[in-house]
Simulated assay, not measured.
Amino acid sequence: MGTAHTAEALLQATAAELAPHAGDNPFVPKVEQGTASRAALAALALEQHHVIASDQRAFAHLAERSTARGESACAAFFGSLADGEEIAAGHLDALSAALGLDAAAIGAYETEPGCQAYPSYVARLALTARPPEAVLALSANFAAWGGYCARISGGLRAHYGLGEEARAFFDFFAAPAPDLDEQAVAAVRAGLDSGLDVAMAYRSGRLLQSYESMFWSTLAERP
Rank of each mutant, 00 (worst) to 15 (best):
S96W: 07
M1A: 15
S153A: 15
A129D: 08
S37M: 03
W145I: 14
S72T: 14
E212T: 03
R189Y: 11
A39R: 10
P132R: 10
L196M: 12
A187S: 13
S217D: 02
V185N: 05
G100E: 14
G34A: 05
Q183F: 12
L11P: 01
D93W: 06
V198R: 09
A36I: 03
W145Q: 05
G147E: 04
T111V: 15
I87M: 11
A158P: 02
A166T: 04
L180G: 09
E86N: 08
A19K: 04
R38G: 07
L99N: 02
G107Q: 08
F142L: 08
A103W: 09
H61C: 10
Y121N: 12
A144E: 02
G114H: 02
A105H: 12
A117E: 12
R69Y: 09
A144P: 00
A4V: 11
P20C: 05
L46K: 00
S213K: 01
A58G: 03
G107R: 06
E110C: 06
G23E: 10
A143H: 07
A88I: 06
L95H: 04
A73Y: 06
A190G: 14
T14S: 09
A45S: 03
A68L: 12
E17H: 11
A97E: 15
R206H: 13
P132Q: 11
L219H: 03
P29C: 05
C74W: 08
A129W: 06
D181H: 13
F59Y: 10
A143C: 09
A144H: 04
A94V: 09
A108Q: 15
F77S: 08
G161K: 13
S72L: 11
S213L: 01
R203Q: 14
R69I: 09
E85N: 08
T3R: 14
V28E: 01
A137Q: 05
A88E: 05
A19Q: 04
A42Q: 15
E164F: 14
L125M: 15
Q209G: 09
E212R: 00
A117D: 06
R65W: 07
A53M: 04
S204D: 12
L99P: 01
H21P: 04
A82G: 09
L81K: 00
G84Q: 10
H91A: 13
A43P: 02
Q183W: 10
V122K: 02
A68M: 11
E110W: 13
S96N: 11
T6A: 15
Q48F: 07
E8A: 15
A190F: 07
W145A: 15
A15L: 07
A144W: 01
R203T: 13
E17V: 06
F27A: 00
A174S: 15
Q12Y: 05
A88P: 05
A36T: 02
T35R: 02
A97D: 13
S194K: 13
R124S: 14
A88N: 05
E133I: 03
E17L: 09
L208P: 00
H21I: 04
G191Y: 08
A39N: 08
D171C: 12
H61M: 12
E8L: 14
